[in-house]
């Protein structure tokens, strides 16, 4: 299965990005092969509106079944739900930590947005 993590850099040691919609990218980690790819999300950094929607479509395009970020807004959450992607909220420092937390079952699935739009 693939796990997408909001990331401000391009390695597993990169800090988790604080925002979902305007994260600079997503590290998409494949738990079967233990490899990862990067989905760029910088095109959303300066979007006036709809960044969360675009980011959720971006994640859906990677084939990830799980996404981890510290915060999700309401529209992003709605699109992730429609795409059947499970959202997990984590305050882990690095992408690797977030993946480890998920693997060890420390994260529980979020069933609502935890921040308002334009957070």
């Amino acid at each position: 299965m693939k796990i997408a993590v909001a990331s401000s850099g391009k390695t597993l040691e990169s800090p988790v990005d604080g925002r979902f919609g305007r994260a600079s990218g997503f590290i998409v980690f494949d738990t079967e092969s233990n490899t990862f790819t990067i989905a760029d999300n910088r095109q959303n950094l300066n979007a006036a509106q709809g960044a969360g929607i675009q980011a959720a479509q971006n994640v859906a395009g990677t084939g990830a079944g799980v996404v981890i970020a510290p915060n999700f807004g309401p529209k992003a959450f709605q699109v992730l739900g429609a795409a059947g992607i499970k959202a997990f909220i984590s305050s882990a420092a690095t992408v690797q930590d977030a993946i480890d937390e998920y693997k060890s079952g420390k994260l529980s699935e979020s069933n609502s947005a935890n921040v308002q739009g334009h957070w």
């Binding site: 509106q49 709809g50 959720a56 699109v79």
Partner: peptide, 18 residues
């Protein structure tokens, strides 16, 4: 261009406020 419609292989979700 305003992300008001989102399609994920499904009928589109509509975000009227956008």
């Amino acid at each position: 261009q305003f992300n008001a419609l989102v399609s994920l292989g499904t009928p589109p979700l509509v975000f009227p406020e956008l």
